[in-house]
């Protein structure tokens, strides 16, 4: 469903992604792990063109994303993104956060958008907070709203960039729980994470990145149980 071919990305002189080839199939949950600075976020951000690509190609359902003729806004509307820092819109209450994009982009009526939003907020367990403001919510609650906001666009896939890294430990679980349920419903997900337990339990594939390359890739059992590459072994030795 998402195909990445020979992806290179440089920031000026610094080459951060040095040729990535990968394919993500529909309904797959792909967890991306690796040391800090290895290019995980950049990889994710290239997929919906938050960073422009230096070389290579990305296809989402056969549509070349980095083609000048492709309407990037249409692509982004189909691929949700959840950020480490939540990035809720602080001047809107929770339900407005969720309905804004469907109303602006999908031209959904307010009534329909609100019905959808309530349904999604129920799903992430926060319908009671619909009329509160982001600053009144805990980090874990804000991140769950951010997931509902992404879902409101009915995306074909969602990209998660360390969704629990900014959270206090006691809130990590509630967010992972929501993500796990999404995975069970068949959402296609790419998750950059340091939660090895989540990667092992929920991931269909685990990708280990280091130094701008995908060093190793496999099922959770293969990668965690029997890593072949020395760098993978060293990394897992540190984090497990």
């Amino acid at each position: 469903m998402i195909k990445i071919e020979n992806l290179h990305k440089s920031f000026g002189e610094l080459e951060v992604l040095k040729g990535i080839d990968y394919e993500i199939h529909e309904k797959q949950v792909v967890c991306v792990i690796g040391p800090s600075g290895s290019g995980k976020s950049t990889f994710l951000r290239c997929i919906n063109l938050l960073e422009d690509i230096t070389d290579g190609a990305i296809y989402i359902e056969k549509v070349k994303v980095n083609d000048p003729k492709t309407n990037i806004n249409e692509i982004r509307a189909e691929v949700g993104m959840v950020f480490q820092q939540f990035n809720l819109f602080p001047h809107m209450n929770i339900i407005e956060n969720v309905i804004m994009a469907p109303m602006q982009i999908r031209k959904m009526s307010r009534a329909n958008a609100e019905a959808l939003a309530h349904e999604l907020l129920k799903k992430v367990g926060l319908d009671s907070k619909a009329y509160n403001y982001p600053e009144q919510l805990s980090g874990g609650q804000q991140q769950r709203v951010a997931i509902a906001r992404a879902l409101a666009m009915k995306p074909k896939a969602i990209l998660f960039d360390e969704p629990t890294s900014a959270l206090d430990p006691e809130m990590v679980k509630e967010v992972l729980e929501v993500m796990k349920n999404l995975a069970l419903e068949g959402m296609t997900m790419i998750v950059v994470t340091h939660e090895m337990g989540f990667a092992r339990e929920v991931g269909d594939r685990v990708v280990f990145m280091d130094g701008g390359y995908i060093v190793e890739e496999g099922t959770p059992d293969e990668l965690f149980g029997n890593p072949r590459n020395d760098r993978t072994k060293a990394f897992l030795g540190k984090v497990l």
Partner: peptide, 18 residues
């Protein structure tokens, strides 16, 4: 305004103007 706000908006599919 933090860069993340623009990125979150764009990632939902909003144009720069929106």
């Amino acid at each position: 305004i933090a860069k993340g706000q623009m990125e979150a908006a764009r990632s939902l599919g909003l144009t720069h103007g929106q």
